[in-house]
Nucleic acid binder design. Sequence first.
RNA 1: GUGGCUAUGGUGAAGCGGUCAACACGGCGGAUUGUGGCUCCGUUAUUGCGUGGGUUCGAUCCCCACUAGUCACCCCA
Length: 422
Amino acid sequence: MLTTVPRGTKDILPDTIHEWLYLENKIRTLCALYGFNEIRTPIFEHTELFMRGIGETTDVVEKEMYTFPDRGGRSITLRPENTASVVRAYLQNKLYANGSINKFFYIGSMFRYDKPQAGRYREFHQFGVEAIGEQSPLIDAEVISLGDALLKGLGLKDILLKINSVGCPKCRPVYREKLQAFFKDKFAELCKDCQSRYTRNPLRILDCKNPHCKELAEGAPEITDYLCDDCASHFSELQESLTNLGIDFVLDSHLVRGLDYYTKTAFEFKYLPLGAQSAILGGGRYDGLIEECGGDSTPAVGFATGLERVLLALETQKLLPVQNSACDVFIIALGKKAEQAAIKILQQLRSNNLSALMDYAGRSMKSQMKQANKNGAKYAVIIGDNELATANAIVRNMKDSEQMAVPFAALIDKIIFEVNKQ
RNA sequence: GUGGCUAUGGUGAAGCGGUCAACACGGCGGAUUGUGGCUCCGUUAUUGCGUGGGUUCGAUCCCCACUAGUCACCCCA
């Protein structure tokens, strides 16, 4: 136990950290272009925030939250997603005073007590954006466009964008009743899961994989036929915008989001080869959440993307960058005196922004040369008794194996000159 | 939470109910005196094959439980 991470968590080791940095840099660059500003909220919040915000009957709240009492007796929950937190921060800090629209993005760990699988972890990382304060479908299109630009910018192919409208508090209940009415006399024939969906979230019955449920669902009413005028026009304007932007999408009237706060637009970018974890980016509009959290009624739209899944997709398409950890200089010191001279040179090189390494174990020259090579050093600097005696160091170009003697006094400048020449 | 599959050294990966548990990569050292990348040699490693039980004269190979990973379901990023 002492040497094992908790289930569903993992170390991100130095040999893969460059992949994360690469992805995060892409994200930050893109968000700057789109005018989304970074926000960092606490890893944990009052449990109440998530229960109210996400919905008490959702799977996330009912069975996936890391909830515990702190020493003061408050109920605390590790954030399972970040939208509720951003909304909380938006309200608490009165950010609505900044203007009619606020655009945020975040990158960070989320926690859900799930059964782990590839692409599904108990601690995982999300990048998400939230645009709060604008109701126009144009902002929906912008948010989707940002997600699209990220995935395309990473070079990913075969990504599928699905969109749907899940209606609003005005029209969704009407549709829901229609749907329940449709399944009422078929209830006994539905699978166990669907029977619970019937009351919980009947829209999900339409997506059941059970063949019999599929049969029963034939001819069921579709949400898009029951949208109110407002939702319907919002949805069609969004489609017009996406078409205008050249973003391919498919309509999926069965697309449902798992969290209660979604209204109108729902969308999902999928990468099918990831199997059950193929949803790599999902989001939608949540016009009711801010009010639910105690603010004025405020429209908002956003998405979240699972970084592990994006990385997984990038890996399958061989789009990950390779690590570049080569150093500029490796100093080879032979003997105690030389070691002292070497650490001094190390320090000087580093203060001149050159990456420099040496061995501290007093190994053989051959061994140190091997290390220089393994570290990808551009130059090796050799200092032994001979060099100390003549006050010259040997500077060896590791690529072409040319080497020269350089007086100590001129050493740093010479190395800087040589490295920059390459 | 439900079901299937898997679990050998740092890594990849052979193997059998009973001689030192292959091989490859890696690590370390060496191939004439202070020099790398190729090649060659040596050496290293698993507290005995995830953990704990059981079957057996004897198990890494058989059984059970647990743990972990993985796949599917649920749901989701």
